[in-house]
Design a protein around this nucleic acid. Sequence first.
DNA 1: CCACATGCCGTAAACGTTTACAGCGATTTT
DNA 2: AAAATCGCTGTAAACGTTTACGGCATGTGG
Lengths: 342, 342
Amino acid sequence: MADGPTITTIAERAGVSIASVSRVLNGLPTRQETVRKVMAAADELGYVRNAVARSLKSRRTHQVAFAMADIGNPAYLAMLREIQPVLKAAGYRLVLHSTDAVAADEIDVLHSLGERYVDGLIMSPLRVTETHLRMLATARAPVVIIGSVPDGTPVDNVRADSRTGVRLAIDHLHLLGRRRIGMVNGPLDTVPGAARGAAYREALAAVGLPYEEKLVEIGDFYRAEGRRAVATLLRRAPDIDALMCANDLIALGALDVLRAAGKRVPQDVAVVGMDDTDLAAASWPSLTSVSLGSAERGKAAAELLLDRLQNGDREPRLVTVLPRLAVRASTAGEASEGGRSS
Amino acid sequence: MADGPTITTIAERAGVSIASVSRVLNGLPTRQETVRKVMAAADELGYVRNAVARSLKSRRTHQVAFAMADIGNPAYLAMLREIQPVLKAAGYRLVLHSTDAVAADEIDVLHSLGERYVDGLIMSPLRVTETHLRMLATARAPVVIIGSVPDGTPVDNVRADSRTGVRLAIDHLHLLGRRRIGMVNGPLDTVPGAARGAAYREALAAVGLPYEEKLVEIGDFYRAEGRRAVATLLRRAPDIDALMCANDLIALGALDVLRAAGKRVPQDVAVVGMDDTDLAAASWPSLTSVSLGSAERGKAAAELLLDRLQNGDREPRLVTVLPRLAVRASTAGEASEGGRSS
DNA sequence: CCACATGCCGTAAACGTTTACAGCGATTTT
DNA sequence: AAAATCGCTGTAAACGTTTACGGCATGTGG
């Protein structure tokens, strides 16, 4: 692992100055003969440009960071899968942070932008605090936020429309004749939790169903929590005939509990998940799920950031991605069999 | 986004030299009064160290790359989930590459080590070619390979033991009384494909069952391919009573086809997957699966690399992770209900 | 009172690039 | 034939750090 060659090494071997070497390497106009000599020397030495020195001088790292709230959550994973190729195609490397949805970690990441090891950041915070907003306003590099941010915040923003998403699901259930539609939600102090809770209430109203406290249970966005919450709900309201779950993991927990309780899905209780992850197609019965377009949001975020990197001072932009309902067996009978595979 | 403060800015404001600033910032012995002045200036200016300049001088980037073969494959994802926190705890950032299992991309990544934008690399190649080996031998930064590499290759290496893994599964099926055990494998020119195929043959011999060509079908490591392969297999050998699948996605495809063919799982056909991903616990019936310890392998790889970064010239080390059989409903009846949630 | 050690600090060089500027030989213009 | 232009090249500075080295006070021992 001997010290690699630098442009100085090349310059000596080719008998030219380092400036010429640099020019050749960057394709700037140079005499043919010089080009030949430099190329030959570079080849023989197995030269590779030092990215660090290059970044220092050019003030561009060609790296972009993505701060995922939760690396285990398939929704964020779907974003990552779209972000990666977009960045790669544009010649950027991806630095991955996992913040475990801890606000302090997110703030750390924002702070670390000052170290200038990346040209920009894509971030999907679960909660947006005052501190977030303050740091966003003074961030040392462009940031794109996936998730909602107050109007006027000076960053590019990509949003899901969970309101419409929940609406799609409730309409679907209502059309199928369901009238006792329960909801299992995640924590109300998270952005998605709050939005989905409110949307549920609204959607019920829209189809003319009453909102009943006892049909709603709050847990967390995990399968085990989903089980717990649904068990509680069933005890409280045994006549429930449909469940709107705030994500797919919760919905899987619901399937577990319903099966154990001897309820048939979808005949007795229809179940809808949210995020339309790979798990939805894999489960049995396969899970009807509201896709909030994680993949599209990731792609949009990456594109917004790349655009901003080329054009530093355009207006902040807001992109909203439309939801879609993926109907599968857990609401629509035995028929459909999801086919997404990775 | 005005140009951030540098140590020069601080030096001016504090009325000291940049050397003193650097010393204070690095905790080297300095007079109290100077420390105070520098700290005050740094705070007021909101100074953050420039990582690029630091790296250039110190020849350390505090970044490590992970080249995933396939970002959509839960097995690699499990590795990522372990690697990330280990690196973070040690103060390293993670640069993520997705090579889509394309050899050329993997070579690119190895080549790019010459750019010195990372201190080391963890890589999980699907196939190991001559070129791989040549580049590994001359890599400009330490590399840890997850997957098998010929003895004598001068890199740290973390292996799964798919031989024992398949053996566990076949023993299990044999104990359950299955005698017509088919296999659905991925491409034989991949490292895992070859290993699993050979292991299947060996394991059959170990329990005294004959190897039959017609019980084996090759596809690829995806669900749709699994469906196709199992359909073919069923046509060719309708009396099959167990299926050993080379990964969980294939096994899910098998479940699809068996259900459609009216075969009960596990009563008529028992199914075993491999990798023990989240999907295994999510499917229904839940899937018995051989865990090859993806998480442990990721963790081991990260630790090997960190160790190597501190101690550049110790002997290459080989870590082998033991497999484990996660028994679920697809072989053992209705009883168990997997509970892993993320 | 001088020699010397000690503790801090500033100057300057280095890490490996990119790039403004000036120099220089050859060609073109007047 | 002198002047201007042109194409190419080398010198040197800069990016923001870290760090070897020497200098300057201060304190100690003879």
